[in-house]
């Protein structure tokens, strides 16, 4: 029983970090209506940014956010403004432009290979940081401190984004654009600027996920690919575009991955996760919190 509780807690904590990683993806999709295939690579960039920030300055990993957040926001903003926007403009008449998806795939390959070129194929991690290897011992249970931090970061990030979207003028403009691009531009909103901001925000959130992972995870050029697939499953599970859905979807996957292996081999839990993914696509393609047709 105590084991079950311990595994569930670990699952929720790890799952919230998956959710955090998926948050940026769902945000970008909600506004741009484009699946960003480069999302894992953005996460990878975030991880390297956090890694170098911590390694060079020696600060607490979460203090690196001060540096990582603006950098990642600017990176995402420029990526959208310079690389993706021209394609968007060329496909102005299409609501869900397919070519943009292909462009994001190209960005994925370029970023991963650039990282390979610049940083080399080595696996890195930060040996000495105040979070690494720390565990809370509660009776017989062991709870990972860096994952607990990740959980708090995920919840805080989701809450802040929700507040931003609901309460600020800019947030309302983002929601308006996501609801109806043409109607929004008739109200004087420049949709391309909103796209840039949404992409920048999504990338910054990937940076937060990178910071949350760096204290306990390995960093290498193709690390994004491992999380990419998970993010897609989470987003489908939670509902495309839903902030809370991403967090909850992540936790569901985390708990399956953590509790499942105690009853079967770890290989099988992967099959269950993919099975769930297919099941949702068949039975409830809008996910837990997505709107049935559109929103």
């Amino acid at each position: 029983m105590i084991h079950l509780l311990e595994d569930t807690i670990n699952g929720v904590l790890m799952g919230s970090i998956y959710g955090l990683a998926a948050l940026g993806l769902t945000l970008i999709f909600g506004v741009l209506k484009v699946i960003n295939f480069a999302h894992g690579s953005l996460l990878m960039v975030g991880m390297y940014a956090a890694y170098w920030a911590v390694l060079l300055t020696g600060v607490h990993p979460y203090l690196a956010l001060v540096f990582v957040l603006p950098l990642m926001f600017a990176f995402g903003y420029l990526l959208q403004a310079v690389v993706i926007q021209p394609i968007f403009k060329a496909e102005r008449e299409v609501r869900e432009p397919i070519t943009v998806i292909i462009v994001t795939t190209g960005v994925w390959y370029i970023l991963d290979n650039l990282a390979l070129l610049v940083f080399g194929p080595q696996y890195r991690n930060i040996q000495d940081n105040p979070l690494r290897g720390r565990m809370i011992e509660a009776g017989e249970m062991l709870i990972s401190v860096p994952k607990l931090w990740g959980f708090c970061a995920a919840v805080a990030t989701a809450a802040l984004i929700w507040l931003f979207l609901q309460k600020t003028r800019m947030g309302r403009a983002v929601r308006a654009t996501s609801l109806d691009r043409d109607a929004a531009s008739l109200q004087g909103i420049n949709p391309y600027k909103i796209y840039n901001i949404a992409f920048g925000l999504g990338t910054a959130v990937a940076g937060v996920a990178g910071v949350a992972l760096v204290p306990f995870y390995n960093i290498f050029p193709t690390v994004g690919v491992l999380f990419d697939i998970k993010c897609f499953i989470i987003v489908v599970l939670g509902g495309l575009g839903s902030i809370g859905g991403a967090l909850l979807g992540g936790m569901i996957i985390g708990v399956i991955e953590s509790v499942g292996p105690q009853f079967m081999t770890a290989t099988w839990t992967e099959a269950i996760v993919y099975g769930l993914f297919l099941g949702f696509l068949f039975l409830r393609p809008s996910g837990l919190f997505g709107v049935k047709y559109d929103w």
Binding site: Y18, L226, G254, G260, P261
Partner: peptide, 21 residues
């Protein structure tokens, strides 16, 4: 314990828990 696991796993603490138990 006889435990195959996917090399692409993002979290191996469940496997480690099994080893521990």
């Amino acid at each position: 314990l006889d435990e195959p696991y996917p090399s692409t796993a993002t979290d191996l603490s469940p496997v480690v828990q099994k080893i521990k138990r």
